[in-house]
Amino acid sequence: MSKRVTLFEPPLLDSSKAQIENVLELTPVVDIGPDVFTNTRPLWHPPGARGIYGGAAIAQCLAAAMRTVPADFAVHSMHCYFVLAGDSEIPILYHVERVRDGRSFITRTVQARQRGRPIFTTTLSFSKANTGGKKKLQHASSMPPVPLPAPPKPSETRFNPNGGGPFESARDEIINRDSKPEDKRIRRWVRCKGKISDAGAQHAHLSALAYITDSFFIGTVSRVHNIPRFSSAAELQRALKALKNPSDLDDEDIVRALKELKEEEAADLQRRLEGALSKLEDRKKKEDHKEIGMMVSLDHTIYFHNPWKFRADEWMLTEMESPWAGEGRGLVLQKIWAKDGTLIATCTQEGVVRLKQDEPIRAKI
């Protein structure tokens, strides 16, 4: 008998909803409490990751909290900590605590638990619409002049192409490629596939945005240092063999996505090597060779600036930068604009980013 990875038997996919809505669907667990929920469907364990895709925990915690808040309140910030790696082979329980209900602001905490232990925790703040008054201070970072992605040709694919994962991405070039790591910017267009249903309303768009924010995020640290996430084909194969419950991607999509990732990294390295003297470069590579030994997120913050003024199923531009790395950690900042130029969110993430060492590091998380 196959092992059940959800608390209840998952229902059939709802064809009237976008794929992201099905992926993030929650089921109330009324036998435990009025504000307890569980994942309706299996969660994705990305290749090479220690546990489930963090964006799923972020998004489902947000979705659970929003179910306890009046419709005229919208989330404006959530501060998250990844405590333990989530196991995709057992259900998750999301426990919502109603910390405070004020006239203008509402506070919630959510703990995601497995085997009775917290694997993820977040505190969220919601604000009531139109409570800022007629006189307001306003400013926002302008969206860079990046053209919208062209429709793909039949022979072309993007990350998580047709079928497979619930969102797609079109990669833009690295800005300030030859500058110092802290001066580089990495831009991508992202959007959910299909059309988010009217029934899902803005809550579905917010959950989808939260899901997407964790994609490519902490990996920015290695990208600005020109260090591949996977250093060999054998390492990719080991990541594939360790994969559990790829509910968001089928095998063909996983292989295609990893192949594209490898090609992107190879192209970056090729550009870096062009024009250099081969002997000097070979010597430098031997002396300065770096490989990622461990990369895992520690915390994640999202500030939602305009929660009612975007659609997650339309193109959104993300720009990521890493202002600091050290002590085995790295920090990444992310801005997200709607396609009309509205700044809809700012995110931060810190994670463990350790290189493979000649001698093992004794400290453990």
Rank of each mutant, 00 (worst) to 15 (best):
M1N: 04
R4P: 02
P11W: 11
S15F: 11
Q19V: 07
Q19E: 14
Q19R: 11
V23D: 00
V30F: 11
D31W: 06
V36C: 09
N39W: 05
P42C: 13
L43T: 10
G54K: 09
G55D: 05
A59C: 08
L62E: 02
A63W: 02
A64F: 00
A65E: 03
V69S: 00
P70N: 02
A71G: 01
A71S: 04
H76G: 01
H79A: 06
Y81T: 13
Y81G: 08
V83I: 15
D87G: 06
S88M: 10
E89F: 01
I92A: 06
H95Y: 09
H95L: 10
V99A: 12
R103T: 06
F105S: 06
T107A: 11
T109N: 08
V110D: 04
Q111C: 07
I119G: 10
T121L: 10
T121G: 12
T121K: 11
T121M: 12
T122F: 00
S125W: 03
S127D: 04
T131F: 02
G133M: 07
G133R: 13
K136W: 03
H139A: 07
M143G: 08
L148A: 14
P152N: 04
K153F: 09
S155Q: 14
E156Q: 13
E156Y: 12
T157M: 10
R158S: 11
P166D: 07
F167C: 01
S169R: 06
S169N: 07
A170I: 01
R171E: 05
D172F: 00
I174Q: 08
N176G: 03
I186C: 08
K195N: 12
A201N: 15
A204L: 00
H205Y: 14
S207R: 01
A210V: 03
Y211N: 04
S215H: 11
F216Y: 11
H225R: 06
H225A: 00
I227P: 00
I227V: 14
I227K: 06
P228H: 05
F230M: 11
A233R: 04
A234E: 09
Q237G: 01
A242M: 00
K244H: 10
S247N: 12
D251A: 15
R256M: 14
A257G: 11
E260I: 06
L261G: 09
K262C: 02
A266I: 05
G275M: 12
S278G: 09
D282Q: 15
K284S: 13
K285Y: 06
H289F: 11
K290C: 05
K290M: 11
M294F: 15
M295R: 03
S297I: 05
H300C: 03
T301A: 06
T301C: 08
T301D: 04
I302P: 08
H305G: 01
P307Y: 03
W315Q: 01
M316V: 09
T318V: 09
E321R: 15
P323Q: 08
A325P: 05
A325Q: 14
E327P: 03
G328E: 07
L333A: 04
W337R: 03
A338N: 15
G341S: 14
A345I: 00
A363N: 12
K364T: 15
I365P: 06
